[in-house]
Design a protein around this nucleic acid. Sequence first.
DNA 1: AAGCTGAGCTGATTTATATCACCAAAAGGA
DNA 2: TCCTTTTGGTGATATAAATCAGCTCAGCTT
Lengths: 234, 234
Amino acid sequence: MIYKTQVDGCEDCQECMNKAPYFKILSPAELEILNRDRYSVRYKAGEMILKQGTSATHVLSLIDGIVKIYIEGMGDRNLLLNLQKPWSLLGGPGLHTDRKIHYSVSALTDVSICFIALDNFNKVMGMNCRFGNQLIRHVSNHSVILFDKMISLTQKQMHGRMADGLLYLSKVFFKSDTFKLYLSRQEIADLTAMSKDSAIRILKDFERDRLITLKGNELSILNTDQLLNISLKG
Amino acid sequence: MIYKTQVDGCEDCQECMNKAPYFKILSPAELEILNRDRYSVRYKAGEMILKQGTSATHVLSLIDGIVKIYIEGMGDRNLLLNLQKPWSLLGGPGLHTDRKIHYSVSALTDVSICFIALDNFNKVMGMNCRFGNQLIRHVSNHSVILFDKMISLTQKQMHGRMADGLLYLSKVFFKSDTFKLYLSRQEIADLTAMSKDSAIRILKDFERDRLITLKGNELSILNTDQLLNISLKG
DNA sequence: AAGCTGAGCTGATTTATATCACCAAAAGGA
DNA sequence: TCCTTTTGGTGATATAAATCAGCTCAGCTT
């Protein structure tokens, strides 16, 4: 499944400096520490990158492609938290607590990942307060987003949740009213905490009401205002 | 409503050192910075301490009493995230991001709070990496707990959620099988994301099934194993 | 080509949960 | 003290959403 390769343009962390915002503030010496034992791996669409419950040994930097982050919950139900694109850091809150992975990560497209040893990462965090403070902002930001998601999932009904999910994809993630939907109906259901059947039904409702169109896996938002309205009313 | 007083045993931060775990690692000079402009306030049960949506100007250290942390959601529904006791830090993820308060905090008992200026707090975070790293652990821990809560609230049905709520109170918060329940039925409903009527009904179910007893607001867990079982089955 | 599989889709049915209407008891106010 | 308000409590009803069964269609495999 996993096969190591060197990814173009990512021979070492010095080159990452200009791309990955989290590493921009590091000195060459600090980057050198991260670069030790660093390696990158290419995954094919559909492959799992991190498995919930395993040990956290590396911080992952997403170099190329799109991944989904999800919690494996009751039975075989998943809760899709969000999607990530370059240059996001992956590994989750367990990196700084119990060194366990608390969410699974899978590739939605072909993906390149850079693995940084957690010990080296922590060493730099102990040397450079600004780097640590950036990380706090990173984790805090996630929390704020989780708060909103919790309200959406626990206090809105299905149409409101679906509106939230679609608005997240178009406004936050893809930043476009038309985008290739890399998610299956089941994954949309995981994103909006409903059954697959219900997700299908509500997408059809939205199509009938001319809020969206779906051709193949190309999704277009036709009426953002009305979606916002549905989101607001719950 | 809010009246300033000096709280016994909290004349300045030097004294907090031995009590508040987050401040233990700070040097006298660093504590002196936190102590500048520091003040403490006593609240009566029921009073609001932080209001969601306002500006974050201080980090709050809970010195005495019990508070509830909750998000004000759709309409007038609240989502009760958790309770806090001394010596917890309050203020939320907005302290490190947009300087907004993202959750409300209310006093369940009479409460004493120490207010530390956010600017001073940040100054110390820039000086002492270990302090910052502790904060990362703090915020990360919250995230891990939120993950579990999201699964509970979105994938379990009412009995499972109520079991989770009661187990949280007895095992995590009060660390006792018998405790004074400071929450109203409405607040228990907010904790478990259901209507007040349903919360009442399910508590009665649990009483009938001899899983708990409720005398006044004294709650006893009689059958932890069965509650765990209900929690697990969802 | 035939057969299989999995994804998307839909109507009918069941189930979980919210809502409503109402009552009793407790708590606070005049 | 009585009156009002709030909180806890309960059965009946309505509604949101999951489940079930079955169907089509596209992509594979043999």
